[in-house]
Amino acid sequence: MSIYSLEKLIAETRRIARDYRNATGKPLGGVSGEIAQFDACKQLDLEPVPPGTQGGYDAVGRGKRAGKKIQIKGRVIFDEERSGQRIGQLKLEQEWDSVVLVLMDDHFEPFEIYEAERDEIVAAQEAGQSKRAKRGAMSVAKFKAISQLVWTREFGEENEVWDNRSGS
């Protein structure tokens, strides 16, 4: 057992990742996914699966998401003007119910979390004709278009989910 709380370790990881990018101009590999998993679990009441667990999901829902198997993806947005930003490969062949995308600012702090159900993602992938789409790759813009905004830094977890597809 560590003498540090996980919350304290994640805060230090955010600082190191930010300082590393400022010093080198490159992101510190693998860090954003770990931070995203921590933030999604904390903000959306999810239970992370134990390390080494086989399956295509990173957490299991509690509360209103009880029992739901969720993949968690994270993306740091350093330049909002830059288009074509992608999320990590979606594991379409594995068992999961939804995907959560945690968007973070250049300080590795979350500012929005989106969630898309499996059937929405599969339909979008089938509609995409590119080789990337067939491999489970998707742009951040496409994910946002088919998903629902479920958490924001300003308001926390959304009581009424905002649906990107209908604009409601």
Results as ranks from 00 to 15, higher is better:
residue 1 M to Q: 09
residue 5 S to F: 07
residue 5 S to D: 10
residue 8 K to P: 02
residue 11 A to W: 05
residue 12 E to S: 12
residue 16 I to F: 12
residue 16 I to M: 08
residue 17 A to D: 02
residue 17 A to C: 10
residue 19 D to V: 13
residue 22 N to M: 07
residue 22 N to L: 12
residue 25 G to H: 09
residue 27 P to M: 00
residue 29 G to C: 08
residue 30 G to L: 08
residue 31 V to T: 14
residue 32 S to D: 08
residue 33 G to S: 07
residue 33 G to P: 09
residue 42 K to T: 12
residue 44 L to P: 02
residue 45 D to I: 06
residue 48 P to I: 00
residue 49 V to N: 05
residue 50 P to I: 08
residue 51 P to W: 09
residue 51 P to G: 10
residue 53 T to W: 06
residue 53 T to V: 07
residue 55 G to A: 11
residue 55 G to Q: 09
residue 61 G to M: 03
residue 68 K to Y: 09
residue 70 I to H: 05
residue 70 I to L: 15
residue 72 I to F: 03
residue 73 K to Y: 07
residue 78 F to C: 01
residue 86 R to F: 09
residue 89 Q to D: 07
residue 91 K to F: 11
residue 95 E to Y: 09
residue 95 E to L: 14
residue 96 W to Q: 08
residue 97 D to Y: 10
residue 97 D to W: 12
residue 98 S to L: 04
residue 104 M to D: 02
residue 105 D to Y: 01
residue 106 D to E: 15
residue 107 H to A: 15
residue 108 F to V: 02
residue 112 E to W: 00
residue 118 R to D: 08
residue 118 R to V: 07
residue 118 R to W: 05
residue 121 I to W: 02
residue 123 A to P: 02
residue 125 Q to D: 05
residue 126 E to L: 15
residue 128 G to Y: 04
residue 129 Q to E: 11
residue 132 R to C: 01
residue 135 R to K: 14
residue 135 R to T: 10
residue 136 G to S: 02
residue 137 A to W: 10
residue 138 M to Q: 07
residue 143 F to G: 02
residue 144 K to T: 06
residue 144 K to S: 02
residue 145 A to L: 09
residue 150 V to N: 01
residue 150 V to I: 13
residue 152 T to G: 05
residue 159 N to H: 09
residue 159 N to V: 10
residue 164 N to Y: 01
residue 164 N to Q: 08
residue 164 N to C: 05
